[in-house]
Design a protein around this nucleic acid. Sequence first.
DNA 1: GACCAGGCACATC
DNA 2: GATGTGCATGGT
Length: 216
Amino acid sequence: MKRKLEDIFKRLYSVFGAQHWWPADSSFEVIVGAILTQNTNWLNVQKAINNLKKEEVLSPQKLYKLKFSKLAKLIKPAGYYNIKAKRLNEFLKFFFRDYQASIKKLALVKTDKLRKELLLVNGIGPETADSILLYALNKPVFVIDAYTKRIFSRHGFLKEEINYAAAQNLFSRHLKKEVKLFNEYHALLVRLAKDFCLKTKPRCPACPLGNKKFYC
DNA sequence: GACCAGGCACATC
DNA sequence: GATGTGCATGGT
């Protein structure tokens, strides 16, 4: 399995190259993006983030001071805007209360401890927590998402109904715990799903993983 | 007009 | 503890 997972990574990397994730100007922007992108197309998230930038409120202080209705309006393109405005505020409440809105202080916390704390924030689930740990704080945590599960289950490496922790465990167990590797691997899977699988339904004639019979 | 998108919490059984 | 449902916009 170790060999297979490494081989898949090499193939993806040779086809697509480095993905340069996460596309953002700051760690805080990564966190905001991680919450906004929940079940949402990234293009829509970018629009919401651009709105925040234009209004010059993309900092913990300014975002926290913003009226709820104003925040909701600005992030509207990302969908679920009422829920997401609440989730951003829930994170900010935690961020100010426990870490004085300091990314540096956040990054000093032991990964397992911080992950548990993030999961206690209403609106932050496993994928969002892990995206924050990996892409905002450079912790070696493998991010699982719907694409990852779908691709690897259709290729027979894991069961479709596998839960988050078990899927994550598979990668954590067999791969070197390196930030760079985990960063690229997840990003490459997203790239594969977007650029091949979803565009070539129901078949994938040029599948980089050699699967030509069905799409992932 | 249907279907999908880099989830999550909550209700109900 | 499994399963269902609401949340909502914009692109294809």
